[in-house]
Design a protein around this nucleic acid. Structure first.
Length: 414
RNA sequence: CGGGGUGUCGUAUACCGGUAGUACGCCUGCUUUGGGAGCAGGUAGACGGAGUUCAAUUCUCCGCACCCCGACCA
């Protein structure tokens, strides 16, 4: 992409109403636009990051056998009444509206009910099980208080996956596969080292649910981390009984701030009973389907990545989620030869399938470097007089600042 | 939802009960060109409403918006 064609611009300063680092940097660099409190639009650069994160998640979900679908944002009141979650007294984040004919509808803050009801139409026999589905959906939640930039908004993108299995054994098998898939996701987006499987309270069906908590100063949660065993417990389950059960000692736990980037739940058959999701087994007996729910906050994950890796100059994207692999910075000025060199290299890299943001703007070096630092693409290629003279270009690593000089051929082979 | 705070050009800020200033941005021109350039000229602003006052951007009230702390958070 030619930067001259990008309508967004960088800003020196963050708006004064943004205190969260992730929002300050994402706005300054032109990734997002704040529409209202807790509601952000994703601009071209920001959308690329969202899509890259989604693609990683998609690959891992497909790898455990799940299929993608897309549910609706408008949801039916009658459906949610079946599980007693329509009433504002029970769910306090509903946005509700009504149709012209007067019937009430809700804006989806979760999709467990709709997807499960959908499944009643298709899952009838043990032969139809198991079934695993997921989607990327914009969730709408009327949070009392939005905060922390894109990390806790009223509108955000979430990956939610649901498992439908015939019994507890099949459920656990998938549940454990999902845990591994989640680990893979967080590893791939660069947060693996600092993300912990965290035991949380489980509700009626199982003792525990599991959260994936990423250590981060901007986090809203407090967790207790066992670094050696690479697990953590949520405050609500920090009891002597649980510690004994997990075979960990209180003194080995460190209190840390963290962001909940994912969570997984076992629902058992409660919701299936409520919504009438049953199947016939081999003997013709009608049995409830076992349900599991698995979420990853895609946009929250993006904010967490910014928070985790940014430095004083700006964003530092891991290669796996960066909007572009390379930031080609041309310092041509009025020098047509340098401009031609940069143009040629841009074409070559692009033709070779590399994703390149090409700073072809008529701007000075300082401004270009500052912008490149802010935007945070992992590798910067600098084209100046020296490149013309030697044929070698500067390759600068955003994260470390390390500079190496490489030839075109070497660059194309990376 | 309880508490606290803030609303001034596009952005960040200053001052002030009596002519709203600065920087960046943006526009024009010239110069400059490896770390947010220089000069000159230009563009653009008091959240909305009511009240107090000779006079309100400034004080008061209401509304709206935004931020922070808490509560909440499948």
């Amino acid at each position: 992409m030619r930067q001259s064609s990008l309508f967004t611009k960088t800003r020196r300063e963050a708006p004064k109403d943004e205190l969260a680092k992730n929002a300050q940097l994402l706005i300054r660099a032109g990734y997002v636009h704040k529409e209202m409190a807790g509601v952000y639009a994703y601009l071209p650069l920001g959308l690329k990051v969202v899509e890259r994160i989604k693609e990683i998640v998609r690959e891992e979900m497909e790898a455990v056998g799940a299929h993608e679908l897309l549910m609706t944002s408008l949801q039916s009141k009658e459906l949610w009444e079946k599980t007693d979650r329509w009433d504002d007294k029970n769910v306090d984040v509903w946005f509700k509206s009504e149709l012209k004919n007067g019937s009430e509808v809700g804006f989806g803050w979760s999709h467990e009910e709709p997807i499960t009801e959908l499944m009643t139409e298709y899952l009838e026999s043990y032969r139809d099980l198991p079934a695993f589905v997921y989607q990327f959906q914009t969730k709408l939640r009327n949070e009392l208080r939005a905060k922390s930039g894109i990390m806790r908004g009223r509108e955000f993108v979430m990956k939610d996956m649901y498992s439908y299995t015939r019994d507890e054994e099949a459920h656990l098998k998938f549940y454990n596969a999902a845990i591994q898939a989640y680990h893979n996701v967080f590893m791939r987006v660069g947060l693996g080292e600092r993300t912990y499987l965290t035991f949380a309270s489980g509700g009626a069906f199982t003792q525990f649910s599991h959260e994936f908590q990423t250590l981060c100063d901007a986090g809203e949660d407090i967790i207790y981390v066992h670094k050696e065993k690479r697990l953590a417990v949520n405050k609500e389950v920090l009891t002597p009984e649980v510690l004994a059960q997990l075979d960990i000692k209180r003194e080995d736990l460190v209190e840390e701030k963290a962001v909940e980037v994912g969570n997984i739940f076992s629902f058992g058959d409660v919701k299936s009973q409520q919504l009438g999701l049953t199947y016939r087994d081999e003997e013709g007996n009608e049995k409830p389907v076992i349900l599991g729910s698995y979420g990853i906050g895609i946009t929250r994950l993006m904010g967490t990545i910014v928070e985790a890796f940014a430095d004083e100059k700006g964003i530092v994207w891991p290669e796996s989620v960066s909007p572009f692999a390379y930031h080609l910075v041309s310092l041509a000025g009025n020098d047509a030869e340098i401009a031609a060199f940069a143009e040629g290299l841009y074409e070559e890299l692009t033709d070779a399938g590399k994703s390149v943001l090409y700073d072809d703007r008529d701007a000075r070096a300082g401004e270009k470097f500052a912008d490149a630092d802010l935007i945070g693409i992992p590798w910067r290629i600098v084209i100046g007089k020296e490149a013309l003279a030697t044929g070698q270009v500067e390759l600068v690593h955003r994260k470390t600042g390390e500079v190496t000089r490489v030839g075109r051929a070497e660059l194309l082979q990376r």
